[in-house]
């Protein structure tokens, strides 16, 4: 396990230098589809932070305490996706019972999250990079914050651009990708800040 990397480095790297969306391209589908309004983007962003943090921890536990001892690591894809789906379903049911307000602001985004590749991607990355338990928690949290930051910024830009005249072929997805490209350029500016792989 890579004990050399302190958890706070992992945390900040996940938000800025290794932003899961802008450098690893994960979660693009919902990023492009749900970034038209700041309000919905914020809701989805919060849901992603929450789910990503918890599932990172759960998947870490499942991987190192169940799959590794049983020598079943090749089953990790199935196990991870089941854990994520089950967790999301559970949270959705709990939120629905407990709070109506929370359900309308957060709950409606939960089904979208199971198919968000950023969640599964984060779990796969932390296994490949051999993070420790604490680092995994901060990696999940940081990646979630990074993703939320990117989608909220994107939604802000797209709201401003509603009245702009965009070339016809570029309207919609094309323009969104160009904005994402420029944002990725901006985030590259952070790369001198921290050094990890």
């Amino acid at each position: 396990m890579s004990e050399g990397i302190a958890f706070y480095v992992v945390f900040f790297a996940a938000i800025f230098t290794n932003n899961i969306l802008l450098t690893n391209y994960l979660g693009m589908c919902s990023f492009l589809a749900v970034s038209k309004e700041v309000k919905t983007a914020t809701g989805l962003g919060m849901a992603v932070i929450f789910v990503m943090t918890i599932t990172s921890v759960l998947n870490w536990l499942a991987y190192y305490y169940i799959l590794v001892p049983l020598n079943l690591t090749f089953l990790r894809f199935i196990v991870f996706i089941i854990i994520i789906a089950a967790f999301v379903q559970l949270i959705e049911m709990i939120i629905e019972r407990v709070s109506d307000r929370l359900y309308t602001s957060l709950g409606i985004f939960l089904p979208l999250i199971t198919v968000n590749c950023a969640i599964l991607g984060a779990s796969l990355f932390l296994v490949i990079r051999k993070y420790t338990f604490v680092s995994s928690f901060f990696y999940g949290l940081g990646s979630g914050i990074g993703w939320a930051l990117a989608i909220i910024a994107m939604a802000g830009i797209r709201e401003k651009m509603k009245k702009s005249r965009v070339p016809k072929g570029l309207a919609g997805a094309g323009m969104a990708l160009i904005i994402a490209g420029i944002m990725a350029l901006a985030f590259m500016g952070f790369s001198g800040m921290l050094k990890i792989t």
């Binding site: 570029l170 094309g174 490209g181 990725a184």
Partner: peptide
């Protein structure tokens, strides 16, 4: 790197739609 990927795909979509 990442930005290049975004730009190439955007231009590709533009050309196809055009």
């Amino acid at each position: 790197m990442a930005p290049g990927a975004f730009f190439v795909l955007a231009i590709f979509i533009w050309v196809v739609k055009g």
